[in-house]
Design a protein around this nucleic acid. Sequence first.
DNA 1: ACAAAAAATGTGCTCGAACACACAAAAAAA
DNA 2: TTTTTTTGTGTGTTCGAGCACATTTTTTGT
Lengths: 345, 345
Amino acid sequence: MKKYTIKDIAELAGVSKGTVDRVIHKRGKVSQKALDKVTKILGEIDYRPNPIARNLKNNKVYQIYVVLPDPKEDNFWAPCVEGVIQAIEEFKSFLVDIKLFFYKPTSTASFKEINKKVLELGPDAVLLSPLFHKESISAVNNYRSAGIVVSTFNSQIVLEEAINYVGLDLYQSGRVAAKLMHTIVPDTHDIVICHFDETLNNAIHMQQKEKGFRDYFSELNGVDYTILTLSVDQTNPDLSLVNFLKSQDKAFGFFVTTSKSYNLVEILQGQRQKNIKVIGYDLLDENIDLLKKDMISFLIHQSPRTQTYLGLTYLIEHFLFNKEIPNKKLLPIGIVNSENLITYL
Amino acid sequence: MKKYTIKDIAELAGVSKGTVDRVIHKRGKVSQKALDKVTKILGEIDYRPNPIARNLKNNKVYQIYVVLPDPKEDNFWAPCVEGVIQAIEEFKSFLVDIKLFFYKPTSTASFKEINKKVLELGPDAVLLSPLFHKESISAVNNYRSAGIVVSTFNSQIVLEEAINYVGLDLYQSGRVAAKLMHTIVPDTHDIVICHFDETLNNAIHMQQKEKGFRDYFSELNGVDYTILTLSVDQTNPDLSLVNFLKSQDKAFGFFVTTSKSYNLVEILQGQRQKNIKVIGYDLLDENIDLLKKDMISFLIHQSPRTQTYLGLTYLIEHFLFNKEIPNKKLLPIGIVNSENLITYL
DNA sequence: ACAAAAAATGTGCTCGAACACACAAAAAAA
DNA sequence: TTTTTTTGTGTGTTCGAGCACATTTTTTGT
């Protein structure tokens, strides 16, 4: 499998490399005769420009900025930062400059402000966690008008034109949780879906997960579970939750749609019969601890670290080597128990 | 974060780029004075040679050969070939040449023959599936004496010097299966470990998995399961298996240590009570079918496709960009049920 | 002191693509 | 026909590292 260069083509076509260049890039003036000669050769061989030579000539430092919630505000985002750091480390020698920008996950104003700032700095690409749907669409459009490539991770947003996304199919993850619940909870017992988030700013996430969860059970024949939904936010503090849980004597399986399973387990502790089953999301330290103690049966892993790492490598390799960015990269939905846990850390 | 070039260093140190080159590569003669000047600058700045320029100058087509069992003989290996094809596709434009070599998974002679052939061809690197332990060690040593880089995948072999490995921790995967079994099978029931392989050439694999499985249960306190082991090979055909299973009335959970779960389910079908639980390995079409029908509870995913893909990218990026090859890359042990199945395909 | 050898250092070319620029050939205008 | 413009084509430089070769400086031997 011979690798052809522009010079090779020039010789084969009996023209100079300048002419070949003009034909390939459709720039400048080329006579019909020369065009024919070169396109003939181009059709006969499989010419792929050497991405390394191209990049060397380019000699540009690409600016890629990552916009995500501050992990100090919500620990869920800490692994995302690790993924970014890993990418920085791995591409240190290359002409890329990766910078992190944090916003407050509880504040749309902060989100807008940071995106404005990033837009002004004018990077080549932005990897964005589009937590707030409306504001994200506007931010993405602004970036695009400025010719900035945008990729998203963790939550999908809907736009007319497709946008690059790395993350989970959240609806499907709800179905996965349901299947697990179905496997471990006898069908005479009740199930509670808990939307456990202090600010409810993960609303879209939680809805998609709930839908997947409920769809699974409603598609089952001959089995009827009772499934309740419980939303907890700032206007609905722990006390009311405790009261609710007390009143639901039969509830047996709990599906927590956020990373706050540990919060639920804490409240349930001692409160009810020991034999309840909890399925939740994310490998936070608090959750890991309870998973090991069998107080959480399964955790669904959203691979936050992989999301940012992959999102970044796609962008970097696009700029450096002209690789195509996959439009939609859905990561495997990881089912984690106490034994395969370490293989995910 | 400025990126320095050799020319930059030469100017800063007041010498020519030739001298800087000699200092960096410790070749040729350099005066103490010049050495000091250059090392001083080198200590002050963070110089990283541009891997792209280096590779361009190199201008060598790296030969990387993949040696694995013929997927026509055992379908387990088909995804491995897909992983190789994906890597070929992705690095088409680069100066790498990836070739596939198949051996018969039932024949050590074939394994030796193929490795001899590959050794004679003298590639730059070999990605090897070391199915036969003794023969693999000898093959790896031969490659190394010839200065060929070797990486392995799917099964780990033990050597004095470390060898690159991409794959699962098989012992741990046995523990994962045990934990799952523990979650879905009441402790009054018996469990059978099935080593289901026509030729028993996966002996090491199966032993590691069994050990992990048994260790998990023996570490449990206050619960005693009865765990039986059943080996099936050519000298022990289906009939004897059927007889065995008939005699074990209490057996309830089955752990199949190979990808042949479908074989077990086929035999069990109609033979015994319906409510048995099977946990096995690998997303073969036959297994997937049974997983969807709930006749297999969980499949453990060994990510064969990812194993070869990753193993290859490590080698390629090592040659092209001087990246370090991770000595041991243990992939997450994927727990697969009917709902997260599609996210693994 | 002077030539020869050895040591130290600088210069220049290569890799492949990209692109500026110079120059030639053909076509249009004088 | 000559001049000017348009169109077409080839040459040469750049990017950074690597390495061969040329050149300069120092050391050694007589």
